[in-house]
Amino acid sequence: MPSPGYRREMPQRYRLEAAKCKKCGKVSFPPRLVCSGCGSREFDKTKLSDNGKIVTYTTIRVAPAQFTTQVPYSIAIVEVDNGVRITTQVVDCKPEDLEIGKKVKLVFRKLYSEGHTGIICYGYKAILI
């Protein structure tokens, strides 16, 4: 299924752009129109840190069609240094290398291709450091 352009090209996916609430300081990633901390609607632009740690993780053995050539692949919830959590693949390692608390760095990678002829989707992934 082709993904809509807004999903592929959003600045937060490529550049980890986030929004910091002007009132309570909570960082939202992705940026929100209403702060989930205090309900305020005013934000400053900010960026997520490239560094973080694993909060929890798994290794996917049965994948949706567009990811089947990648199995087994590991996915984690990563807490980056400014406290925001994201779901991301952890690559260039074996499933048994992952542990809760291990440090990771976010890198720019291909997420999947829409078949041999469609759009290539890029975004962030994590590698162990």
Binding site: I60, I75, I100, G123
Partner: peptide, 24 residues
């Protein structure tokens, strides 16, 4: 869809991450 599924997560995967955290 934008922030979980796009990265290859599945439902077993989400519950597996809950399980790992619960076990931990």
């Amino acid at each position: 869809q934008d922030y979980e599924v796009y990265h290859g997560i599945t439902f077993p995967g989400l519950y597996a991450m809950i399980a790992k955290a619960h076990m931990h």
